[in-house]
Amino acid sequence: MTTDESTVDTNGVHTIERQSLRTRLLTANTFWIGLVLLGLVIVFSVLAPDAFPTVFTAQTLLIETAVLLVLAVGMTFVIITGGIDLSVGSVLIFAGMVSAKTMEAMSPNGNALNAGWDVILVGLVVAIAGGTAWGFLNGFLIAVAKIPPLIVTLGTLGAALGAASLINNGSDIRTVPTELRNTLGYGTSFGGIPNLVLVAVVITAVAAWLLHTTRFGRHTYAVGSNAEAARRSGIGVTRHLTLVYLLTGLLAGVAGFMSLAYYGSTTISAHATDNLNAIAAVVMGGTSLFGGIGSVLGTVIGVFIPAVLKKGFNIVGVQDFWQMIAVGAVLIAAVWFDQQRRRARNRL
């Protein structure tokens, strides 16, 4: 008797069963990196019991990560298809810039500080449209013209930043409507939850639903896992890839508007490393750069690990630069650990 046949005796048809919740949890990429995040929070809470585990710290931590979270959620889709988007930071700036410029142009004397909701709403639409346009350009060049994503988005990284700078001759626009800053930027709802964070949470929840329960999400995994198999199964791979990059551009547009509301400026020079931070967060969260594997929850955890490290080091009085070293170490360790586990599992 061969080993294959001996399993027949013990595992009949009726034992083709669901995996238990426990096995799913333990094999999930997100579970272990989630423990790391939890561990960090506990360590800093013990080291600084008066300063770290407070409502104020939680609020600022959440606000500071909200914009990056939206970028990283979009990046998750792109990386699951096996691609990369280096342009998100520049697209964010571009979207903020066209939005601010439009709101200025609609206001008397080119001063949008006292603009009302009608102008702000137009600004939002313009920001989303601006981001989506770059996303579509990325998607078209990658999916239709078949140029590698790294090259395309390296190109649009420079191009979007250049275009944003041209709009206002390279200087920032600082006349962001006060109404927008007071509501989306600094306002809170439900007894202290920052509005900016609420927006990010809603976007993240919608994205998680899109990725994990819809046909669009399933096809995203399929395209990243084996594009040829997806094509033979009747999936429109070209269309799907274009849509994924378009979605990422759209979210970068939304992030640009959120950044505008929070900083009250177009912050041209402040987003140079947003793309790499977003990629690092996605990869730390267990999404494979080779495509086909990943989750939105993992990305959320991946976004918070650097943020918690930074906040924690600030509070316990360690120099900020250590945070960069620590994040780098966590990133490499997370990927290494993940590879080891995956190899072990595939040997079974």
Partner: peptide, 29 residues
Amino acid sequence: VYQDLALADNLDIVQNMFLGRERGTPWLL
């Protein structure tokens, strides 16, 4: 059934068998 199988490695058996012809609505499989 092609020689090189054309399965998506990262997807599970169910997901592969229904790939491109998923059941349920597009928004909730």
